[in-house]
Nucleic acid binder design. Structure first.
Length: 933
DNA sequence: ACGCTCACG
DNA sequence: GACGTACGTGAGCGTA
């Protein structure tokens, strides 16, 4: 019979592989491979199920042909029909994702045909093959319990629930749906399916649907005669939702004509070959299964090492760096070859070279790709002759492909969902390419991988990472561009010099990725990377590109006013000093105050200069000295003018009229973002004079700025983490948290609370978040140290949970070298076991990091979900200021935006973390940021 | 390049 | 018992 055409007497088994995987994943604990921590629980379960199935395939029902069928990709033709199809499905768990390709390998290792088809679900392939088997006169058994497949039963096709070992034939289907297999889709179309998000007819379930179909024969007859139905509700539903029901039917109906390129004859059952199967099982390190199958096959089980592989930190690279091996791409054939390489391996490291570090204005000069360690190319597109002539007519260097040709060729690859684009600080490259109409996705980012694994240990720039993890020092960019005044742009660097530098960056990035990818699992920060780092990249890129409108005239007027006031103050200060000096020089000011004028309390810092900080000057001013008081005023104005009203004007983009900040994702150790060029996270707000600078941040005509900020988020997180019932209750009841603290500490009833007592309690609450010390609190409250210590003692007495939290956090940091946020972010504290003041710093940072970091995680989650949540609302998210999000919204959509954004922010911890305190969000709106805040 | 000062959360 | 401190950032300025 072997080799015969499939037909009578043959029996095809079709396994719903994707269902196997999910069942295996959920049934088993999260096993990991011992040598490197790769998650393999689902693969293990999958192999056991396949093995068990093969073992049981004896006797008259044994298959002559078989295949395991998988879903491929998440987008199918059904999504084109209905964008909500399966839209309520959760994302695939992060530790399952890397196991998916391994299950394909497992299938092949068992010598089973492995089928999948882009754009189709496994069910469609199964439907197609089952139809072919039936038409050929053979039998077919579908190994699955998915009711969506029941429409295929009949005419020699049956289903088998492998778990319950239950065969389902036409009668079984009728028992389940109340109709025969041929009418299953009609019933499903009416009943809908919440799991797959099939809408169906509202209020009609399987029972009613079967009743109706049995009465009218089929769905179309039912719908055309819907007006005959007696029950008014039912009648109206069927008439009103007729189209939705028809759509549902199309969604549940399986495609029996998928273009699968395999013949039934090719699916003939073959015995597993010991070689490849043993090799795969051993590679997965499945000890028990390897031994058992080896015994059954009568072969020797391969040896599986029992020790974790050594961590290759700082190990020398396997492939040496060879700059002359990099290719300069100068023709389309070479470019196409590189694109083909990316398609072949499914990933590619990408790096762009540009004329400046400002992504909003930089021009593309070249693109680098790497698909393999040591193998990289440079594609020059924007090199120009240096030293432009008198007419400014810079000439394009010869030997470069036209920019548009290169972009047209690269765009499909850079946007191809099945090719992973790897970058170091990919937000930069993505923004550059976005300006050339390329939407890079999906991405991985070695900087963010390092941040997830190594926050607190070292920086995450390419040079640091290359040195540390590849033992290689990259070519310094300075050697190409020079520095200072004579610095040139990358466009002016000769292609021959540029290529090794540029291609090397892609090579390094790829090598780092190869090393970091498995290390991410070992460090158990995959979820942090996948949910808190990587998805933030496109969100921030869009915020930065949106920018915020800043009114130059407002700033300019303020600058002039500040300049006038400063001149007056400067005059007074010089008069008071009796001599002109540079008020902006702390050194000169210190000498004037403490040497010349002989004021008390001059303290020199480590550089030998007097300290003249605001606290020092305030003390002197409080003693009645005018000069330091004037200097304080002058300094405030000077700060506002130079840092804000002047500098901000230089950041207004000529094309957009807006200011585009850049957020560093891996800048702050705790998970907070940092804003640079310019920093829009420290625009003044605390003093009235400074606050007015926010009036220059405005909405476009017809739009409004809306600010939403978390109320007391860090204290709420502290109350949750440390489990302080009194504080948690106060938050639940929406009470004044500082007043409650004061009341508890000083035994003052709430209605007798004075502002001063409340202020002290507030300082203590914040002190706790910062890793409180008597010295620090004393300085902040300007009270004697002993008194401050007394406050702290009383606070710990009243809220012993705080002390427990601090002790537990310190102990954890000491034994693990890091602390964690509620979402699993790790912040390393390498100096916690040092001696001296360093340890004190590390201790306080360790106390603070889980609280600040958890708050940072929360708002990151909100930002990542925000774009979906406000879709359709004419609004854009512009800025993040740690606990605040600023939006620009069309006037008539303000209330809608506030409602939606608030909902996302308040629920941002769910479902990963169930906070025992509510998160609440305050909202404001106005024509400018001062009003909105 | 580095420290000081000060803006924010 | 002494040490030197509130946590996390970035920018502009003066000084070396």
């Amino acid at each position: 019979m072997a080799g015969d055409k499939f037909g009578k007497g043959h029996h095809l088994h079709l396994v719903d592989g994707s269902a196997f995987i999910f069942r295996a994943y959920h049934a088993l604990p999260p096993l990991t491979r011992k040598s490197d921590g790769l998650p393999v629980g689902a693969v293990s379960g999958f192999c056991n199920m396949i093995h068990k199935m093969i073992e049981g395939n004896t006797g008259p029902d044994a298959p002559t042909h078989a295949a395991v069928v998988f879903d491929k990709g998440s987008h199918t033709f059904r999504n084109d029909m209905y964008d909500q199809y399966k839209a309520n499905r959760d994302e695939m768990p992060e530790d399952l994702r890397p196991q998916i390709p391994l299950t394909r390998e497992a299938t092949r290792a068992f010598n089973l045909a492995c089928l999948e088809l882009e754009g189709y679900e496994a069910d469609d392939i199964i439907a197609t093959l089952a139809r072919q088997a039936r038409e050929a006169g053979g039998r077919c058994t579908i190994i699955s319990s998915d009711k969506d497949l029941m429409q295929l039963v009949g005419g020699g096709v049956e289903m088998l629930d492998a778990m319950k070992n239950l065969r389902i034939d036409s009668e079984g289907v009728e028992a389940k749906f109340g109709v025969g297999p041929d009418r299953v889709v009609d019933v499903q179309a009416l009943a809908g399916d919440s799991v797959d998000n099939i809408p169906g007819a509202p209020g009609i379930g399987v029972k009613t649907a079967a009743l109706l179909i049995n009465e009218y024969g089929d769905l179309e007859t039912l719908l055309s005669r819907a007006d005959e139905i007696k029950q008014p509700k039912r009648r109206e539903t069927l008439i009103e939702f007729a189209e939705q029901i028809r759509l549902s039917k199309r969604l549940v109906t399986l495609d029996t004509e998928t273009p699968i390129e395999v013949t039934l004859e090719e699916l003939e059952v073959k015995d597993p070959e010991p070689g490849p199967l043993m090799a795969f099982l051993a590679e997965m390190e499945f000890r028990t299964l390897t031994r058992r199958i080896a015994e059954q096959m009568g072969v020797e089980a391969p040896e599986i090492a029992d020790t974790p592989a050594p961590v290759a930190e700082g190990a020398p690279e396997a492939v040496p760096f060879n700059h002359s091996a990099y290719e300069i791409v100068r023709d389309m054939a070479a470019l196409e070859a590189w694109i083909a390489r990316a398609h072949a391996v499914g990933y590619v490291a990408v790096d762009t070279e540009t004329t400046s570090l400002n992504e909003m204005t930089a021009d593309l000069v070249g693109v680098c790709l790497s698909t393999e360690a040591g193998l990289a190319c440079y594609i020059p597109v924007g090199h120009r002759e240096g030293g432009d002539d008198l007419f400014g007519g810079e000439k394009r260097v010869d030997g470069q492909l036209p920019l548009t040709d290169v972009l047209n060729a690269l765009k499909p690859m850079l946007e191809e969902p099945s090719i992973l684009k790897i970058g170091q600080n990919m937000k930069y490259d993505a923004k550059i390419l976005a300006r050339y109409g390329v939407d890079v996705a999906p991405i991985d980012d070695t900087m963010l991988m390092s941040y997830a694994m190594h926050a607190g240990l070292h920086g995450h720039g390419m040079d640091t990472l290359s040195d540390r993890y590849l033992g290689h020092q990259p070519i310094p960019i300075k050697s190409l561009l020079g520095s200072g005044k004579s610095q040139i742009t990358f466009a002016e660097v000769g292609i021959a010099d540029a290529a090794p530098y540029a291609a090397e960056d892609a090579d390094i990035t790829l090598r780092l990725w190869q090393q970091f990818k498995p290390a991410l699992h070992r460090a158990q920060v995959t979820t942090v990377y996948e949910t808190l780092e990587r998805p933030l990249v496109p969100v921030l890129a869009r915020m930065e590109m949106a920018g915020i409108k800043v009114d130059r005239d407002t700033l300019s007027r303020m600058s002039n006013a500040f300049a006038q006031k400063m001149a007056g103050l400067e005059h007074e200060i010089h008069a008071l000093a009796g001599t002109p000096f540079n008020v902006g020089s702390p050194k000169q000011l210190g000498e004037i105050l403490f040497d010349q004028m002989g004021l008390e309390g001059g303290k020199k810092g480590k550089t030998g200069a007097y300290a003249t900080g605001a606290d020092v000057l305030e003390d002197l001013a409080a003693q009645g000295h005018d000069l330091p008081a004037r200097v304080l005023d002058w300094r405030q104005l000077s700060k506002l003018k130079s840092t804000y009203t002047d500098a901000l004007q230089d950041h207004i983009n000529a094309e957009t009229g807006r200011v585009h900040t850049s957020y560093s994702i891996a800048g702050a150790n705790t998970g907070r973002l940092a804003s640079t060029d310019p920093n829009l996270q420290n625009i003044p707000v605390r003093t009235e004079e400074g606050r007015r600078i926010r009036e220059a941040f405005i909405a476009e005509p017809g739009k409004v700025l809306v600010s939403l900020d978390y109320s007391q988020i860090e204290l709420r997180i502290l109350a949750h983490i440390a489990g302080i019932d009194a504080l948690k209750q106060a938050f639940r009841e929406g009470q004044d948290i500082h007043a409650i603290t004061a009341s508890e500490m000083f035994n003052v009833p709430l209605d007798e609370m004075t502002p001063d007592v409340r202020r002290q309690a507030k300082a203590i609450n914040f002190g706790v978040i910062y890793g409180i010390s008597g010295f620090g609190l004393a300085r902040n409250l300007r009270i004697p140290r002993a008194e401050a210590q007394g406050f702290i003692d009383r606070y710990f007495e009243r809220f012993p949970g705080i002390r427990d939290y601090m002790d537990a956090t310190r102990d954890f940091a000491k034994s693990n070298g890091y602390v964690q946020t509620l979402f699993g972010r790790k912040i390393h504290t390498p100096e916690i076991n040092a001696k001296g003041p360093k340890a004190s710093f590390a201790y306080r940072a360790a106390i603070n990091a889980p609280i600040q970091g958890t708050a940072a995680d929360v708002i990151r989650r909100a930002m990542i979900r925000m774009e979906n949540a406000i879709e359709g609302c004419p609004a854009r998210m512009l800025l993040q200021v740690h606990d605040e999000l600023l939006f620009e919204v069309e006037e008539d959509a303000v209330d809608d935006l506030i409602a939606r954004a608030r909902e996302v922010m308040e629920a941002a911890a769910d479902p990963a973390v169930q906070l025992s305190v509510p998160l609440t969000v305050d909202a404001g709106q106005g024509a400018n940021w001062a009003q909105a805040h």
